[in-house]
């Protein structure tokens, strides 16, 4: 069972906007912070995050846990992460369904998992291990991918859904990532949405991507594309009102642009909810 929290629409806290966030305290439902950027540190970044936290909910989103790796967790990571969580008291804690570490080394990437029974079993155990350590549930996010493994025997959405059920964690549904991977691997984004259990989805991500022609790349740059808005509308109709984040990490725009994109998501959500009612 995963209990959802209603937070509305959020934006990421990025260095470029620190001063503006503190001075103008913009109206946003919540703020996302990248866990690793604030773990085991002090100074201005942590001070800004703590100040922002006083005004509104913060969710911590990780990129370095490497939940699917066969490499053991780094004890320093787990210690610093837990410390930060204790300090910030985030509304949600998440990381990706991926791996990026091997043999004590890191490529700092969100490499896709092979969707096999063995990998599922492994990832379930790892999520359980983390949740036990933190004493709380986490969300696992689907990533954009540019390759698949011939050894995969399960669909991505089935893997993610089984993981959430068996490890009893939440799902962070990145709508842009679904679209990007669906196009890259020729599966149906609608099938993906239909395949994910409604009660597990606790957060949405929206972002821009780059269409290279033969491949879509998840860049987190620019506006959310029209087909991704359309998919978001479908997601809202299926999963309901779920906290939504706009991810814009490359060519970070002025805060006003980011807030306008977030307001657009709120509008799309309202429209989708209205269509849903008889």
């Amino acid at each position: 069972m995963f209990s959802r929290v209603k937070l509305g629409h959020g934006v990421g806290l990025r260095t470029k906007h620190y001063a503006q966030f503190l001075e103008e305290r913009p109206e946003v439902g919540w703020v996302e912070a990248i866990s690793e950027n604030f773990m085991g540190i002090g100074g201005r970044p942590l001070a800004v995050l703590e100040k922002v936290r006083r005004d509104r909910p913060v969710v911590l989103h990780g990129v370095g846990l490497s939940i699917g790796a066969v490499a053991p967790f780094d004890p320093t990571y787990l210690r610093d992460w837990k410390e930060l969580i204790g300090r910030i008291e985030p509304a949600m804690v998440s990381d990706h369904l991926c791996w990026g570490a091997h043999g004590g080394r890191y490529v700092h990437d969100l490499l896709p998992m092979p969707f096999t029974e063995e990998a599922l079993e492994h990832t379930v155990r790892r999520v359980e291990q983390v949740q036990e350590l933190l004493g709380r549930q986490i969300l696992i996010e689907n990533v954009s991918s540019y390759l698949t493994y011939p050894s995969s025997t399960i669909s991505e959405w089935d893997f993610l859904s089984q993981l959430a059920r068996r490890a009893d964690c939440g799902i962070l549904l990145d709508v842009n990532n679904i679209y990007v991977s669906a196009r890259n691997h020729g599966f149906s984004a609608d099938d993906y949405l239909e395949g994910v259990p409604v009660d597990r989805v606790a957060q949405y991500h929206l972002a821009g991507h780059w269409d290279r022609g033969d491949l879509l790349i998840d860049t987190h740059e620019g506006h959310v594309s029209d087909p991704v808005w359309a998919l978001y509308r479908k997601a809202v109709r299926r999963f309901g009102e779920v906290p939504t984040l706009i991810e814009w990490d490359e060519g970070v725009p002025e805060l006003e642009v980011l807030l306008a994109e977030s307001a657009k998501a709120a509008q799309v959500e309202r429209d989708a909810r209205a269509e849903q009612r008889p």
């Binding site: 490499a71 791996w99 091997h102 490499l111 096999t116 492994h122 390759l147 698949t148 493994y149 011939p150």
Partner: peptide
Amino acid sequence: MNLAEIQAALFSLVRGDRETKVAPEEVVG
């Protein structure tokens, strides 16, 4: 290939390690 073998091979391919012995088609579709 099991999970550990896949990760060892792809990790080394992504890093462009000179000593990589696995070919991309052995790991990736």
